[in-house]
């Protein structure tokens, strides 16, 4: 089995740690080796969060080299863009299209490039494997904006890159989220999964 390397990027507070831990738990359940790196401490305060998850028979290091990621799971469009060096043509780039504007922009010091006119078109131009979805909207449709991290896990699962089936991922979500939120999160998972399958089929 070939190792699968995922880079999960976004902003502190978006639930990235939870989603990477769900993924890790699913892999461990299947008796695979997992090595992850997480961000704790100061950087979590609204800063950039970069988490890696590597799954395989034997995994030796917690970080990913340039161009080596199998998937970039971006919770925020410019953070996806910032991580693009980790991707090559083979990499699935699954990104939320809904921006989170940093304060450097809201105070007027810097500019946020247009997602629709700049970020997405230039990604489209460099790879055939871009999958953009509005995770916030899908999460709200599922019942709560806070579930967008699980929407993104559904989207990731739809790429079929993981050595884990949809059922195994759903089982991990059920095990890892608090019981009273299981239905909500499974709905969010399906929203992300279905939307991404549509995107892949339309390619």
């Amino acid at each position: 089995m070939k190792r699968v390397d995922l880079e999960i990027v976004g902003v502190g507070g978006q639930g990235i740690l939870t989603s990477s831990q769900v993924l890790g738990a699913a892999a461990l359940e299947k008796d695979l080796d997992v090595y992850m790196s997480e961000v704790h401490g100061m950087a979590q305060r609204g800063g950039v969060v970069v988490t890696t998850v590597k799954i395989g028979e034997e995994v030796y290091s917690p970080l990913i080299g340039k161009g080596d990621a199998d998937v970039i799971l971006g919770f925020e469009p410019i953070e996806t863009y910032r991580a693009i060096e980790q991707a090559s043509k083979k990499t699935w780039i699954v990104t939320n299209t809904q921006p989170m504007v940093p304060f450097t922009v809201s105070v007027g010091n810097e500019e946020y490039p247009s997602v629709d006119d700049k970020i997405l078109p230039s990604l489209e131009a460099s790879t055939d494997r871009l999958l953009g979805l509005d995770a916030e909207k899908l999460a709200k449709e599922a019942g709560a904006a806070i579930t967008q991290n699980i929407v993104m896990l559904g989207a990731l699962t739809a790429t079929d890159v993981l050595p884990l089936s949809k059922d195994e991922m759903i089982q991990a979500v059920e095990n890892q989220v608090p019981e009273k939120f299981v239905d909500l999160n499974l709905k969010a998972f399906d929203k992300g999964f279905d939307r991404t399958k549509e995107l892949i089929e339309s390619k």
Binding site: G12, G46, G67, I78, E85, A87, P102, E111, P113, A125
Partner: peptide, 22 residues
Amino acid sequence: EDQAEPLSPEEYELPSRPPSLC
């Protein structure tokens, strides 16, 4: 020789996102 070929899309000036008071 590293065979990986990182993507290099058009470069944009991306806004920084330092941590901030909540």
